[in-house]
Amino acid sequence: MTWSEVLDLLNVGFQETAWMVAVSTLLTAVGGLLVGVLLVLTDKAGMLPAPPVNAVLGLIVNIGRSLPFIILLVAVIPFTRLLVGTTIGTDAAIVPLTIGAIPFFARIVESALREVPPDVVAAATAMGATRRQIVGKVLLREAMPALVAGLTITVIALVGYSAMAGVVGGGGLGDLAIRYGYQRFETEVMIATVVALVVFVQLVQMLGDLLVRRLSHR
């Protein structure tokens, strides 16, 4: 294989990975924030105490967290067909990626919100803030650096998960490394792909760190 062919492969793989990770990150951010906030609110010491809801939600999140991704990938195939109309390809891979990452990020959100000092929440309550104001202007705002740091971790985990997306024909860099490097012994392709992955992860981490520094005023 010539270098220009390798570069073409890498280019396509990179775009596929970037697409899968970008879309599933967006969906995960929304879903994870929602579930994380709900976990905090419904806690028995929370603002909308609902222990049964909390317990069920916690259980679902834990199941999601403990399932090996490869199993989840296969298990959600019917759901994927329903949602995207197909079970193979990059778009189809986004469904299990998102489902796998939401519980992961939700727990990060939950612990980030719990890190906000109770004193600060009490102060807002004493001022007569509404629950909506407390969630939006106090909890989420104060936890923002931790949330961004957590999302960075999630994005990188998604890059890792996306390597397995090849199973459903999702493509991407990870899939490239497995198909060419592992299965066909094209060592150069594998090394090039791994280097591309490292660079990708490195960029994500740097961007995340930069944002956290910008946001943090502690």
């Binding site: 000092p117 102060a123 004493a126 007569g128 803030a129 509404t130 946001l215």
Partner: peptide, 22 residues
């Protein structure tokens, strides 16, 4: 009604309880 009543009661705290992000 309690929220409205709280507007007329200021409170200060030992550890200040300020928003670090603002």
């Amino acid at each position: 009604r309690l929220r409205l009543a709280r507007h007329t009661i200021g409170m200060i705290h030992q550890h200040f309880a300020l928003l670090s992000s603002r």
